[in-house]
Computed example of a mutant assay.
Amino acid sequence: MSFAKAQDLLRLALMASSRHGGISLAEIRAEFDVSHRTAQRMTDALEATFANVEITDGADRRRRWRLLDPAIARLEPRQETTIEALEIATISARDDNRLRHARALEEMRDRLMARLPARDALRAEADAEAVLASLGHVARPGPRAAQRPEVMDAVIEALRGPFRLEISYGAQNSKQRIVEPHGVLLGLRSYLVARQPARGPELLNFRMDRIQTANCLDESFAFEDGFSIDTYAAKAFGAYQDPAQYGEVVWRFSPAAAERAAGFQFHPNQSAEHQPDGSLIVRFHAAGWLEMAWFLYQWGDAVVVLEPAGLRQLTEGYRRSDFDALP
């Protein structure tokens, strides 16, 4: 067995020991980026190497492999990459004002470092610092709306329940309102997605920077049936949602811009079609014409809006030809 295969087998054994329900072929394929047949060979090797492998067939008809009482769990693989990942995740959490998550990540990093021998800990810390020093942060253009860390903490606590949230929104000393949080859309301007029972059953977007105070209540509620924050977010191009604007969006990028545009994912559910003249047509369904217009402006006259008519009218007079470069 090659060293690479031995490392993969060790990694698979650690996964099979650390996951309470075991690991399936689909999870192995995704984790190791291998074919179904290779995943089967890996489970064969796991069974052949370890005597304490338990195999179960779940209610979802998926077979899972698990190591029982594994001594392998006491092995300590090198942790440089894990420490780097925790450091990067901590920075990201602090940038988003998710201070509770940042503290939890720091504590996890500290516990991991405490378990390492002093020499390995110093080496891992030095390697992590070197990597972080080499990763530049490119800020998105434009201002970023500030938000209060204590508000984000209260929102996260409410989402964990889920519990209702009492917020004051808008002007200082505004009237308190009770909302039922379903998720948060993070971005240059972040939004709390919540239902306000006093206003009806529909989901609303509340700008996080306009929430003055937030208090998690000891009152549970039920999420909207079938709600998914990813599905909800995909209804908009950016963060703002206007149901009246939702529909098919069609953009045509010029032949000169087609290759550059093909390298972008403008929307999670987009489709792209190369045309005989070398242009590129991109289609997706979403709302948020103003945010689309802001984005399209930077493409100058290299893009034309075919649909919807409202977005075409919004952008037609602002397609410049004097930009030096494409995004």
Rank of each mutant, 00 (worst) to 15 (best):
S220F: 07
Q265G: 05
R283G: 00
A287I: 00
R78H: 03
R119C: 03
A6N: 09
L116S: 09
D95F: 06
F264L: 09
I83S: 04
G300Y: 11
G247I: 11
D127Y: 05
E47M: 13
L186P: 02
D277S: 12
C216G: 01
N97P: 00
R140T: 13
L116Q: 13
A236W: 09
W299M: 01
G278D: 07
F264I: 03
L116W: 10
P268T: 02
A51F: 10
D33K: 12
G136R: 00
L116V: 08
M15T: 01
H267C: 08
A236E: 10
A26H: 12
I91D: 06
N97H: 11
L10V: 09
A104E: 14
L314S: 11
D230A: 15
A256W: 07
S18L: 11
H20F: 03
R119W: 06
A128Q: 00
P327W: 10
R199Y: 00
I28T: 15
A16C: 15
T315W: 06
Q147M: 15
D8L: 05
S228M: 05
P268S: 00
G300D: 08
E31M: 07
Q298E: 04
A234D: 09
L132P: 00
R103E: 15
L68G: 03
L122I: 03
L67R: 01
V34T: 15
V184R: 04
